[in-house]
């Protein structure tokens, strides 16, 4: 390993980490408001990937244009699933909500399979590259990162400066208190779930800008697991925590590769995966509210 390689890996990790972080915000938002872990998370990421793929190949629209489209699709799906299923599961035992969200994921995967088949797909949106001497950075990746940061910032603004956002925040902090203060808690639940799903589907678009291949109905499982680790790192109930935890996760994943590669007899790549889950457990052991948690 050289310093150049480590530097290159860290830059790539930072960019990817930002996208990972954005891809986890929806999960954290839903948990923060509804106290439900969305085990079907990855399936929604997959839907976003297909939105980007389909818009690009069928209509020639760039992934940038796919971002609002994905948000709309995602929020529609979110409202649909909320009013059909999730509404009944608020406050239910973990067992019930975990199983229900998992089943939602399966339904999405199977429906997409019926429409698009099981082929692995990809698209080519080539907009040039930047040579950073330690590594080469395609601009599409950079745009994905910028998009992620922008969405995180918009969400921050929405939470703090708008009425709806403030209502959501008050429910996160104290749902009974919010109810007393006249907040329509049922609507906040619906809106938060839809927004959470919307963000997750949107993140699918951004992820394909980073990795525009391997798009398949069953591609989401990996992202569910990554999102869990990142969400816990960020405190599970905090969307911004999740964003910054994503960046940290990306840096750790890529940085540790270079270090593990120095140890003979190890498979560095598998070890980076091991490390991420070891960190997960360590965080839960010493600081269950997350690395960036407040409590």
């Amino acid at each position: 390993m050289t310093w150049e390689q480590l530097g290159g890996n860290l830059i790539q990790g930072l960019i990817l980490g930002g996208v990972y972080g954005m891809a986890t915000m929806g999960l954290s938002l839903i948990f923060g408001v509804l106290r439900v872990v969305n085990v079907g998370h990855g399936a929604f990421v997959m839907v976003g990937a297909f939105v980007a793929f389909w818009l690009f190949t069928a209509l020639g629209l760039t992934p940038i244009a796919a971002i609002p489209a994905a948000l709309v699709v995602g929020m529609a799906l979110g409202f649909l699933f909320f009013y059909s299923v999730m509404r009944r599961l608020v406050g239910a035992p973990e067992l019930t909500s975990l199983l229900a969200t998992f089943a939602m994921g399966i339904i999405l995967e199977e429906v997409v399979k019926l429409i698009f088949g099981t082929e692995f797909r990809g698209y080519n949106w080539d907009v040039g590259k930047m040579d950073l001497s330690v590594t080469v950075l395609p601009l599409a990746k950079l745009y994905a990162f910028i998009g992620s940061v922008a969405i995180a910032a918009l969400l921050y603004f929405w939470f703090n400066r708008t009425r709806a956002g403030t209502a959501v925040r008050s429910v996160v902090e104290d749902s009974e208190g919010a109810r007393v203060c006249g907040v329509n808690v049922g609507w906040v639940y619906a809106l938060s779930f839809a927004l959470g799903i919307g963000l997750t589907v949107t993140s699918g678009v951004l992820l394909t800008m980073f990795i525009p291949v391997g798009i398949n109905p069953y591609m989401g499982g990996v992202y569910t697991l990554k999102a869990f680790v990142i969400a816990v790192l960020g405190g599970l109930a905090s969307p911004y925590g999740a964003f910054f935890a994503g960046v940290i996760f990306g840096l750790i994943e890529n940085g540790s590769y270079s270090l593990f590669a120095l140890v003979p007899g190890l498979e560095p790549f598998a070890m980076t995966r091991f490390l991420s889950f070891a960190i997960l457990l360590l965080i839960l052991l010493i600081r269950p509210t997350g690395l960036l948690g407040t409590k």
Binding site: T2, F210, V222, Y257, A261, T272
Partner: peptide
């Protein structure tokens, strides 16, 4: 001579070592 895990989503770290 290296391997990468199944369902990998980013090969960048391996590939930059490979380039070297």
């Amino acid at each position: 001579k290296r391997t990468y895990p199944k369902k990998v989503t980013d090969l960048t770290p391996l590939l930059s070592d490979l380039r070297a």
